Simulated assay, not measured.
Amino acid sequence: MSADVPETLTGVWATPNCASAQDTLVIYKSFYLWLGEEETSLTGLTLSATQPNGWTRLEESDGYPNFFTVLADGRLREAFLPDNAELGSVPSEDWQTTDYESCGNSLPRSQVLLHGESVALLQVVSDTQKICQTDRNACANALFAGVDVSGDGNLSTAEIARLVRVAGYLAAVSEETPANNDDLAGVLAAGLPLGPLMASAIINSFDYDDSGGVSLAELSQDRDTLIDQLKPEAGGELNSRLNQMKEALKPLGRMLENFGQ
Rank of each mutant, 00 (worst) to 15 (best):
M1W: 10
V5T: 07
V5K: 00
P6W: 15
T10S: 02
W13R: 06
W13Y: 06
P16R: 15
A19D: 15
S20G: 05
S20I: 02
D23W: 05
K29W: 08
F31E: 11
F31P: 08
F31Q: 11
L33Y: 08
L33S: 07
W34F: 14
W34T: 13
E38H: 08
E38A: 10
S41D: 14
T43H: 07
T43G: 06
G44D: 08
T46L: 10
S48A: 10
A49H: 06
Q51I: 08
L58Y: 00
L58G: 02
G63Q: 00
P65Y: 00
F67A: 03
L71H: 05
D73R: 01
G74C: 01
L76M: 10
E78Q: 13
F80P: 05
L87F: 10
V90Y: 11
E93G: 07
Q96L: 06
Q96A: 12
T97N: 03
G104Q: 03
G104T: 10
L107W: 00
P108K: 00
P108H: 01
S110F: 04
V112E: 11
L113K: 09
L113Q: 11
L114Q: 07
H115T: 02
V119F: 01
A120R: 07
A120Q: 07
A120N: 04
L121Y: 05
L122H: 04
S126R: 08
D127G: 06
K130M: 09
Q133P: 06
D135Y: 09
A138F: 10
A138T: 09
C139K: 00
C139I: 00
N141M: 12
N141W: 09
D148A: 02
V149I: 06
V149G: 03
G151L: 05
D152K: 02
L155Y: 01
S156F: 00
S156H: 01
T157L: 00
A158D: 08
A161G: 01
A161Q: 00
R162K: 06
V164H: 00
A172K: 11
A172I: 07
A172E: 03
S174V: 06
N180M: 09
N181I: 02
D183F: 12
D183I: 13
L184E: 08
A185L: 11
A185C: 08
V187Q: 03
G191R: 02
P196K: 02
L197Y: 08
L197M: 12
S200K: 01
I202V: 14
N204D: 15
F206K: 01
Y208P: 07
G213S: 04
S215T: 15
S215F: 04
S215C: 07
Q221T: 09
D222L: 14
D222G: 12
R223V: 10
R223E: 15
R223G: 15
R223S: 15
D224H: 13
D224T: 14
D228N: 13
Q229P: 11
L230R: 04
K231A: 15
E237R: 11
E237I: 15
E237D: 14
N239A: 14
N239E: 15
S240E: 14
N243D: 13
N243A: 11
Q244T: 15
L249P: 08
P251N: 08
R254Q: 14
M255P: 07
L256P: 03
L256W: 05
N258P: 05
F259G: 06
G260H: 14
